[in-house]
Nucleic acid binder design. Sequence first.
DNA 1: GGGGCAATCCTGTAAAAAGGGGATTTTTGG
DNA 2: CCAAAAATCCCCTTTTTACAGGATTGCCCC
Lengths: 207, 207
Amino acid sequence: MKPVRILIVDDHYIVVEGIRSLLQRVSAVEILGSASDAESCMRFLDRRIPDLILLDISLPHTSGIDLCKAIHEKYPRIRILGLSTFKEQSFVRNMLDNGASGYVLKNAGIDELMIAIQTAMKGGKYLSDEVAAALTDQQIDPAAPVITRREKEVLNLIAEGYTNNEIAGRLFVSVTTVDSHRKNLLTKFGAGNTAALVKLAVKMQII
Amino acid sequence: MKPVRILIVDDHYIVVEGIRSLLQRVSAVEILGSASDAESCMRFLDRRIPDLILLDISLPHTSGIDLCKAIHEKYPRIRILGLSTFKEQSFVRNMLDNGASGYVLKNAGIDELMIAIQTAMKGGKYLSDEVAAALTDQQIDPAAPVITRREKEVLNLIAEGYTNNEIAGRLFVSVTTVDSHRKNLLTKFGAGNTAALVKLAVKMQII
DNA sequence: GGGGCAATCCTGTAAAAAGGGGATTTTTGG
DNA sequence: CCAAAAATCCCCTTTTTACAGGATTGCCCC
């Protein structure tokens, strides 16, 4: 069987070296090379097509999620495995929605990595246990609520310290509209007042 | 010259492998071993004392910052280099305050890592360029104001969503007192209202 | 083409916070 | 011991939010 040809995309030199070192010992895979950002990744793909890409989520300039999407659209046959320190539900979901074949945490060992690669190559999806757990957990306590674009705008302005009146002026809408959005935000976040709302939003990294 | 004996503490297997692979080629260092959390690190130190520890910030259970403190108190002669993806000012500051000899980002190359190690061993402090930049940036805008213990208590309760009235009840003081603290907080943070206050406080990691 | 959702607007009351004044007692540090 | 800082308390006015109801438009998707 031909080895799986792999491209590593990660801006952390140490991580790239780690993966290289781990996979070098395995004959079933062949490392074609590595890239440290979206641009160099796309340039690489202009020349050579790997079977699978190990893709870090947090890249400079373009995020791994956007890059995942771009790769998947241009080269639908390349399998993509998300790779990250974080098991944030939203990251994982976004990666999978954008065509990734799985998501592996950086504390994975060689065994897990190989299983993920093989699963992906067979057309399956692989998620680290913890990731899968985080994903299902999420439905139990509904972490970050879904808010609309407009609500997010209002939320940002609230957190900046603008009053309903000022926000209404900025967004060219009536004060009552802003108040409605605010009320919805309080409900969605389960916050009793603005202070609690802002705290939750900042902690959840929405702001 | 005797090689620098190093312990790697990181819960990311891949990162550990990366560092190993990088440093194996260098004769000036010797990797004693690795640990994946605070507990196993301390157990390791019961048996063997390295010259230097490469310490990841984000560890399970106990944070790298706490571990740094613990190591530094028990083994003041061991040099500690912080290692992380993040260049958050507060992390860096905390590490340095707790006895670390430097802070290296995970996108560092072997050259940078070796310079950091050598600088640390000579008693100096090494910071990645980006980290140093983030640190000095911070001093330009007057970061976190000095607040009193009581003000912090009040601030926390405000952020939890309690009203002045409720806070007064909890702290067994009058509402006017709480209001005074609140007013002082607004002034100290330069915030126009509670929302802005809470946002700043959370972002500055005070909450 | 109808259901759902987002975004918009409305009325009204009660509660809370912001703003601007002080004043008094503890702590705490030099 | 004394001064400065912190913590406590008070009054008053205006502005802003919170809470409780609705109602209307437009848009997207099935």
